[in-house]
Each structure stands twice: as structure tokens, then as C-alpha cells.
């Protein structure tokens, strides 16, 4: 134990703790709470029943009220811990409630009705998870369809991005031809054209080519990412040309050189682009919101926003759906975070 403590408090040069060390650790611990706390609160809340979500002050953990079946009643009744006038407490089941008075029975003696003021009782609860928040949206809403749309858009867009961007990057890094520098300039120049600047004309172009209200209308405008071409080109420039020339000597066609030599060698850069593309396309919001107006085509992000924008927000479903929407990104974070952070530190792209 003392080994652990001395390891954690070890300082360069063996000096004592300085006030800046304490500030640093407070900042880090605070950061841990602020960065993960909201997501954990979301997950915890998503397992609460609607009644519990409406409660104030909210509890940290999700609880469910205990119920019991009482002889002579079809439905299970909710149990309450009641403080009786004689000072003793007893667990009773509620039959009905009229104003501030509840009619309750002892589950063991179902014939004696006791009238209780609701101020002198509290529900019997135990920690429990309202998993129906997760199962019901699949039945009652188009949630499954949104999920499928999102998966389709993300997978297709990523595949097409990888293929077209790597082909373009191959041409731009391994061939000398007239207009190459101009093409590169064009691509880099539009690196910074954000969607919001071309929103209206892009909409009219997409509707002119007949892709309005289709998932391909969501996918295609996103796949020619200048960032992807740029990243792959920079990487392919490091592949020695001698390798390609040797393959040409062996009578390999240009397509074979691209497919069997350059692509496998560029695998690390392709992997980084694939991770980025998955996160980007999964998270896209504004463009799908503009292009999709038929409800059955909504992606998760648009669907979530629509449900959350309704007058009567059904938070218990929204929270559970938000958690599901978060899962792929959390998986990427847990397993692939290293690649992303090194990608950003290296190229400054996001």
C-alpha cells in the first residue's frame, strides 16, 4: 500500500509536494467528474421510470417501487411504508387514492381497509432498472428503422470515402500530369468550405439530381472529404516510387499497383480515416436534417432531435435512445482513441 502511495506521489527530483501539484490534481479529478459525470448521469437516468424522472430532488440511482398481488385484486398494487397513528410502521398496499387520503390494505389481511393521509407514507423501493425504456422504443417508435438508417449511412459513406479518396490520393501522389497542382489547390482550398455556407445551393443540387429524401442524398455529398484526400496523399508520398517501378517491370497494371501495393501500404492512414469517417457520419446532424423529410428515412440523430423537440417530451425513452446513440462512439473511444489522438496531433484534422 505504501508502495502505491509513494508511486502516486512521486515527484521529479524527489521534492516535496508543491501547491501547483495540488492544483493540478484538483483540476484533473474535477475534469474526470465534469467530462464523464454528465454521461454517467444520463445512463443512470435512462433506467428510471417516468414517475421517478419527474421527481425532485432526483435520486442518484434508479429505483423501482415494489408491488404485491393482493387477494381479490387483479392488478399488482404498489406497496407503501405507512406510519400509523399509534406510532408503528407497517407495509400496506394502495387500493385507490382520493385527494390526500389513500385507501390501503394489509396484503396479509386484504379485507380491512385503512385510510391513510398520503403525507404519512412513502413508497417501498429498491434499486432496479426500468429496462422497458430500452425495449419499448423499438416497438412503439421507428427507433429500429432510425438505427438501421444510421448504420447504413455510416457504413456506405465510410466505404465510398475510403475508395474514392484513396484513388484520388494515389493519382495526386504518384502521377505527374498537367493540372495536378491545380487539382490539389482546389481540394485544399475547399478544405474550409463549411456546410452552412453552401447549405441552400447544395440542397437544390441534391434535389436536381433526384436524391432528395433518400439516404444516398445524405451519403454522397459527404464522401468527397478534402481532409481524407489530403491525409491519404501525405501518407502515400512516403511510399517509395521505386516499389511501384519494380511492380511495373513485373508487368503489373496501374490498377494492380494501386490495389495490391499502395492500398496495403497505406493501411495505417486508411484506418485513421475510417475511424474519423465513422465518427463524422454517425454524428452528422444538420445535413440529414435538411435533406430528409420523410420520417422513415430519419437517422438516429435527426430522430432523436425530433422526439426531443415534441411538446410532450417522453424523457424516459429519449434518454435510453440517447444512450444507444452514444454506444458506437463510446466503443470507438475505448478501443481506438489512441489512433484518433495521434491523428489529430499529427495533422490537426477533426
Amino acid at each position: 500500500m505504501s508502495g502505491v502511495v509513494s508511486f502516486l506521489t512521486r515527484r521529479r527530483g524527489g521534492r516535496f509536494w508543491h501547491w501547483t501539484d495540488i492544483v493540478s490534481w484538483l483540476w484533473l479529478i474535477g475534469g474526470l467528474v465534469v467530462m464523464f459525470g454528465p454521461a454517467i448521469w444520463l445512463v443512470g437516468s435512462s433506467f428510471k421510470t417516468p414517475a421517478q424522472l419527474a421527481e425532485f430532488p432526483p435520486t442518484i440511482l434508479p429505483y423501482v417501487s415494489q408491488q404485491a398481488t393482493v387477494e381479490g385484486h387483479d392488478k399488482p398494487l404498489t406497496l407503501y411504508r405507512v406510519k400509523l397513528p399509534d406510532g408503528s410502521t407497517k407495509v400496506l398496499a394502495e387500493l385507490r387514492r382520493i385527494g390526500t387520503v389513500a385507501q390501503m390494505v394489509d396484503p396479509k389481511a386484504p379485507n380491512d381497509i385503512v385510510k391513510v393521509n398520503i403525507a404519512s407514507r412513502e413508497p417501498v423501493r429498491e434499486i432496479g432498472f426500468a429496462t422497458e425504456n430500452y425495449t419499448e422504443p423499438f416497438v412503439h417508435f421507428d427507433f429500429l428503422r432510425y438505427l438501421r438508417n444510421s448504420v447504413f449511412v455510416t457504413a456506405m459513406a465510410t466505404l465510398i470515402t475510403l475508395l474514392t479518396n484513396s484513388m484520388a490520393a494515389f493519382a495526386l501522389s504518384k502521377y505527374r500530369f498537367r493540372g495536378r497542382d491545380l487539382t490539389m489547390l482546389l481540394i485544399v482550398g475547399t478544405l474550409m468550405v463549411p456546410l452552412s455556407v453552401i447549405l441552400v445551393p447544395l440542397y437544390s443540387v441534391v434535389s436536381a439530381v433526384g436524391l432528395l429524401d433518400s439516404l444516398w442524398g445524405v451519403i454522397l455529398p459527404t464522401v468527397a472529404t478534402p481532409t481524407g484526400v489530403f491525409l491519404l496523399r501525405q501518407y502515400m508520398l512516403t511510399i517509395p516510387d521505386e516499389l511501384l517501378d519494380a511492380a511495373r517491370m513485373d508487368n503489373a497494371s496501374e490498377w494492380q499497383i494501386y490495389w495490391r501495393i499502395v492500398l496495403p501500404l497505406a493501411a495505417p492512414a486508411l484506418a485513421v480515416l475510417a475511424i474519423f469517417s465513422v465518427v463524422w457520419r454517425w454524428n452528422d446532424f444538420l445535413w440529414p436534417l435538411v435533406v430528409l423529410s420523410r420520417k422513415e428515412l430519419y437517422t438516429l440523430q435527426v430522430g432523436l432531435n425530433t422526439y426531443a423537440g415534441q411538446l410532450n417530451v417522453q424523457w424516459h425513452y429519449i434518454l435510453a435512445m440517447t444512450v444507444v446513440t452514444m454506444i458506437p462512439v463510446v466503443l470507438v473511444f475505448v478501443f481506438l482513441q489512441r489512433y484518433i489522438t495521434s491523428g489529430i496531433a499529427g495533422t490537426g484534422l477533426k
Binding site: L28, M35, F36, A39, W282, N283, Q301, M326, V329
Partner: peptide, 13 residues
């Protein structure tokens, strides 16, 4: 990684 976590979350989430 702790400070990077929210960067990956979707804006809607």
C-alpha cells in the same frame, strides 16, 4: 483521454 471523451460525442447527444 478523459478530456478528449466529449469530442467524439455527437452534438445531438
Amino acid at each position: 483521454a478523459v478530456f478528449f471523451f466529449p469530442v467524439l460525442l455527437s452534438p445531438v447527444v
